[in-house]
């Protein structure tokens, strides 16, 4: 009985994002789209004029903001969130090698690549942090009666700076997605090929293989 050694195949698919994660991602992306689209006339009313009355635009912005935590929380809780929770742990934990990789902006080879590269991890962490900060500063701006004026001004300041950062990061994210079709497809259809995983996420691929039950021996 020979041990099962098989080259990673380009025709065998591995699940990278399950349907819960994909749904959470695209609902979140949709909300970001609404928030960013409505942010533009709210910031630059004097430049863009008004397509919709400001009040309507700000209502849409407000409700999209309030909805923002929903897909994230819903995808993390419950038995359906197991995969999401595992990936959050994965994104949290970094090896020294990964920190080095990020410092070199990816211009280095790393022996063990996780399911997500350090850039992808940082994007997720930044986006989570930005969501928290935008919700907090947005809440101070919306329910301003409960806060001193200096806080409201500070919240506006924070909301502005983070908004700028969010625009840069989101457009960067979309740029990377469009130039890395295999990664993007995994967020649309869920799967990557074994070959992709072995090349771009070998650490994860090895875990995946180890977790796979060995095929029953043939007679």
């Amino acid at each position: 009985m020979a041990p099962q050694i098989r080259a990673p195949s380009a025709s065998v698919r591995i699940l990278r994002f399950d349907v819960v994660q994909r749904t959470a991602h695209w609902v979140n992306a949709g909300l970001f789209g609404i928030l960013m689209t409505t942010a533009v006339p709210l910031y630059f009313g004097s430049f863009f004029g008004m397509v919709l009355p400001r009040h309507t635009v700000s209502e849409i912005h407000l409700w999209a903001g309030i909805a923002l935590p929903v897909p994230i929380i819903a995808s993390l809780i419950g038995p359906w969130g197991a995969r999401m929770r595992r990936d959050v742990r994965r994104i949290n934990l970094w090896t020294r090698e990964e920190i080095y990789w990020l410092r070199r902006m990816g211009n280095t080879s790393v022996a063990t690549l996780d399911k997500f590269n350090p850039g992808q991890k940082l994007n997720t962490i930044f986006t989570s942090g930005a969501i928290l900060v935008m919700l907090a500063s947005g809440a101070v701006m919306q329910w301003f009666r409960f806060f001193p004026v200096s806080w409201r001004t500070g919240a506006t300041f924070v909301h502005d700076l983070f908004a700028l950062a969010v625009f840069v990061v989101v457009f960067g994210h979309i740029g990377f997605a469009l130039t890395h079709r295999d990664s993007m497809r995994s967020m649309i259809k869920g799967w990557v090929t074994e070959l992709w995983a072995a090349r771009h996420a070998n650490g994860w691929f090895d875990e995946h293989k180890a977790a796979e039950k060995p095929a029953p021996p043939r007679e």
Partner: peptide, 18 residues
Amino acid sequence: VFLTMAALGAAGIAFGAK
């Protein structure tokens, strides 16, 4: 990183006006 961002955001809200 997440907690640093949260702290920066909170500090900005409290002291941004200053």
